[in-house]
Amino acid sequence: MTRGNQREKAREKNLKKQQQNKKGNKNDGLSNLQRKEKDAEIMRQKQAAAAAKKK
């Protein structure tokens, strides 16, 4: 009956993995539009910093 034990262990491992994936949600309750705006602002800042460093 070791197979049953393997299945149970695999189920536990998968459940734990799914719970960790839910924790890693980066939206922080933002709508898609708000998230895109936030990401765009971050990219603008990075580009400005890279341009300043290049000069």
Rank of each mutant, 00 (worst) to 15 (best):
A52C: 01
K55Q: 05
R3G: 13
A51P: 04
G24V: 04
A50F: 00
N27L: 07
N27A: 12
K53H: 11
N27D: 10
L33E: 15
L30C: 07
A52E: 13
K26M: 04
R3H: 10
I42A: 15
Q6D: 15
Q19I: 07
A52I: 02
R3N: 12
M1F: 09
N25Q: 12
G24I: 01
L30V: 05
A51T: 05
A40T: 07
N5E: 13
K22P: 00
K53R: 15
A48F: 05
L30P: 04
S31K: 11
Q19F: 04
K53C: 02
R11G: 04
Q6F: 13
A48Y: 01
R35M: 14
K26W: 03
K22L: 08
G29M: 02
G24H: 02
N25E: 11
K9N: 07
L15Q: 15
K23G: 02
A40F: 09
K26I: 01
K36D: 12
K9L: 13
L15N: 14
N32D: 09
L15G: 05
A50H: 01
Q19V: 04
R3W: 06
K46R: 11
R35S: 09
Q34C: 01
G4A: 08
A51Q: 15
R35F: 14
S31I: 10
K36G: 01
E8P: 00
A51L: 11
K16P: 02
E37H: 06
N32V: 06
R7N: 08
Q20F: 01
D39Q: 10
K46T: 05
A48R: 07
M1N: 08
L30M: 15
K36S: 14
R3E: 12
A51M: 11
K17G: 10
Q34P: 02
Q34K: 06
N14Q: 14
K13L: 14
E37V: 06
R7A: 14
A40Y: 07
A51C: 06
R7T: 06
M43V: 12
A52P: 02
N14H: 01
K16R: 10
Q19K: 13
Q45C: 03
A40P: 03
Q34Y: 01
A52Y: 03
N25A: 10
K23R: 14
Q19C: 03
A10I: 08
E37N: 09
M43P: 02
E37L: 13
N14G: 01
N27K: 11
D39L: 11
L33F: 14
K23Y: 03
A40H: 06
G29V: 03
K46L: 13
Q19T: 04
G29W: 02
N5T: 07
